[in-house]
């Protein structure tokens, strides 16, 4: 069953360092393809680190493994992913006349990948 979340794509130092190694390296691919979920949400949704989840909105979707966010970094109801190809899939083309598409604080739905099949 899909649940609403707010997705925050952002930079991490891991993303920055692996970016320099190359966008086709395993390190970069893993970094931009891992979804951080708050510990409370992981527990509630009975997710384990590495479980595949599908995240989608009316623009697009991606399916990636999830991981428990460190400590109290992420409050419940919020998801985090490093900027990259996946996060861009959920960005719409509308910039509300300012040139910047909504790129953070996106309303998304999350469901376990198994459930979507």
């Amino acid at each position: 069953m899909a649940e609403p979340f707010i997705l925050i794509p952002g930079r991490t130092s891991q993303q920055g360092t692996t970016l320099n190694e190359g966008k086709y390296t395993e390190g970069y691919r893993v970094e931009i393809s891992t979804l951080q979920v708050a510990p409370e949400d992981m527990q509630r949704l009975e997710l384990e680190d590495g479980d595949l989840v599908r995240v989608y909105n009316d623009v697009g979707e991606f399916t990636v493994p999830c991981i428990t966010a460190r400590g109290d970094e992420l409050p419940p109801g919020m998801l985090f992913i490093s900027y990259g190809d996946n996060s861009s899939r959920l960005m719409g083309g509308d910039t509300q006349g300012c040139g910047m598409p909504d790129s953070k604080g996106l309303d998304v739905f999350l469901e376990t990948a198994k459930a979507s099949e």
Partner: peptide
């Protein structure tokens, strides 16, 4: 973002940037 998403630009010169991986779909 807009001239691409609206399908307006008919050619592009892109310098040291990777919009194919970070622009909207």
């Amino acid at each position: 973002s807009d001239v691409l998403a609206r399908g307006e630009a008919d050619a592009a010169l892109i310098i040291a940037s990777d919009p194919m991986s970070n622009f909207s779909q």
